[in-house]
Amino acid sequence: MTDTPLVLFAEFTDLDPEPARELLAERGIRTEEMRFTAAGEVELEQRRAIGIIAGYSTINAELIDQFSDLGIIAASSNGTNMIDVEHAVSRGVWVTNVGHAATDEVAVHTLALALALLRELPEMTRTAAAGGWTDDLPVTPRRVSSLTLGLIGYGRIGALVARFARPIFGRVIAYDPFRPPADEYAEAVSLAEVLETSDVVSLHLPLTSETEGMIGATEIDRMRDQAILLNVSRGELVDLEACRKALDDRKLAGVGFDVLVGEPPAADDPLRTHPRAIVTPHAAFLSDAALRSYEIDPASYIADWFTTGEPRACVVGRPAR
């Protein structure tokens, strides 16, 4: 048995754990992957861990309660829906995410999806690949500067999308009941106005019990005919079956999704190959710089907490003092 402070990786994901291991080792903190008994409980010798680096697996109240000295859970993602943040905070445990790591990447990816669909790039590339040329195009793109972009959610990513998009679109509007836009890039409007007047609707929301399934058949029916729906947040925000039907019925002109439900989705999921869908494999965050942040930032927030008593940034759960 050692008294050296211990931080656990909830699991090893596709991220390289070595940068985090090295940073924590410099602070005198050892690291291990979380291990479980046959009964599904954390092994006894790991239950005095002071921190957890969370990946995709669930960190629920039952798991949190197995630790006697836990002080911080650092998610290696922007979303923290896999963590029971409320329970962690009630136990005096800080919770962080990597909210700053890929803001630029996700905003650029959003705009790329929007422009690719509006400029009919999937149809144009299919035409060229089939041997056709200009006169063979079955569609004519709309002029983007005459269109309205509607954002649902105006946090860091939504606001940056608005800043990037404002010189390109004719109008940018946004709905966020908690952080309505107060800048020159987007107009604050109601959810109804976003749905009913936008040519492109883009979702920038966390997954919560309130937002799950918020875009379903009823909401799609309220959208403009031939509108485009984008989702780079969480797949569960959208009723995918309703989206497929709206695409097939040509209610929606297209969808641009970086996320689906149950990732990875089934290999034969019809949205993967739908002619008017662009689906990317949950890669909106991806860049060389962002990967470095995802690998090192959770450990750096744990090191901050270990040294000063609190993480310096990206706090999503703050215990009462």
Rank of each mutant, 00 (worst) to 15 (best):
Val194Gln: 10
Asp225Val: 14
Glu184Arg: 14
Phe9Pro: 07
Asp225Gln: 14
Phe164Glu: 08
His87Gln: 02
Thr37Tyr: 12
Val139Lys: 15
Ile83Asp: 01
Glu263His: 11
Ala112Ser: 06
Phe164Asp: 04
Glu310Leu: 07
Asp304Trp: 08
Thr96Arg: 03
Ala116Lys: 01
Arg48Ile: 08
Val200Tyr: 00
Arg48Glu: 15
Arg119Met: 03
Arg142Leu: 13
Leu24Gly: 11
Arg163Gly: 04
Ile50Ala: 00
Thr307Asn: 05
Tyr154Asp: 00
Asn97Gly: 10
Leu44Glu: 15
Ala303Arg: 06
Val315Thr: 11
Leu260Phe: 08
Arg126Glu: 12
Thr110Ser: 12
Ala303Glu: 02
Ala159Leu: 00
Asn81Ile: 01
Val255Arg: 02
Asp136Ser: 11
Val259Gly: 00
Leu205Ile: 06
Thr307Gln: 12
Gly150Trp: 03
Gln46Arg: 10
Phe257Met: 01
Ala114Cys: 14
Leu115Ala: 04
Ala246Asn: 04
Val93Ala: 10
Pro141Arg: 11
Pro122Lys: 07
Thr58Pro: 00
Asp183Leu: 15
Pro5Val: 05
Val85Phe: 10
Ala267Thr: 03
Pro180Ala: 14
Arg47Glu: 09
Glu196Trp: 02
Ala74Lys: 05
Ser233Arg: 07
Glu184Leu: 05
Leu160Met: 15
Phe257Asp: 00
Glu236Trp: 02
Arg321Thr: 13
Leu6Asp: 12
Ser209Met: 04
Ala116Phe: 00
Met1Trp: 07
Val95Cys: 09
Asp258Leu: 08
Thr125Glu: 11
Ser293Tyr: 03
Arg27Ser: 15
Gly153Arg: 02
Ser209His: 11
Val316Gly: 06
Ile220Pro: 01
Ala102Tyr: 00
Trp305Gln: 04
Ala217Gln: 10
Val85Cys: 11
Leu6Asn: 14
Arg179Pro: 00
Ala192Asn: 15
Pro181Gly: 03
Leu195Ser: 07
Leu240Cys: 10
Asp136Gly: 09
Ala74Thr: 08
Ile73Asn: 01
Gly131Lys: 13
Val232Ala: 11
Asp176Ile: 12
Ile278Ala: 05
Ser57His: 10
Ala88Thr: 08
Asn60Leu: 06
Tyr185Val: 05
Ala88Leu: 08
Phe169Met: 09
Thr125Ala: 15
Tyr175Pro: 06
Asp239Phe: 12
Arg171Ile: 10
Pro298Leu: 05
Asp304Gly: 15
Arg250His: 12
Leu111Arg: 00
Gly317Gln: 10
Leu205Pro: 00
Pro138Ser: 14
Pro19Cys: 02
Leu205Gly: 07
Asp239Tyr: 13
Ala10Cys: 08
Arg163Lys: 14
Asn78Leu: 05
Glu236Phe: 04
Ala188Asp: 11
Glu295His: 10
Val316Pro: 06
Ser209Gln: 13
Asp84Ser: 01
His100Asn: 13
Glu187Asn: 06
Ile168Val: 14
Glu41Lys: 15
Ala61Arg: 13
Leu230Ser: 04
Phe178Arg: 06
Asp135Leu: 12
Met214Tyr: 04
Ser145Pro: 04
Leu260Met: 14
Ala10Lys: 02
Tyr154Gly: 02
Asp3Trp: 00
Arg276Asn: 14
Pro177Met: 13
Leu240Asn: 09
Gly158Trp: 03
Met82Gly: 01
Ser287Trp: 07
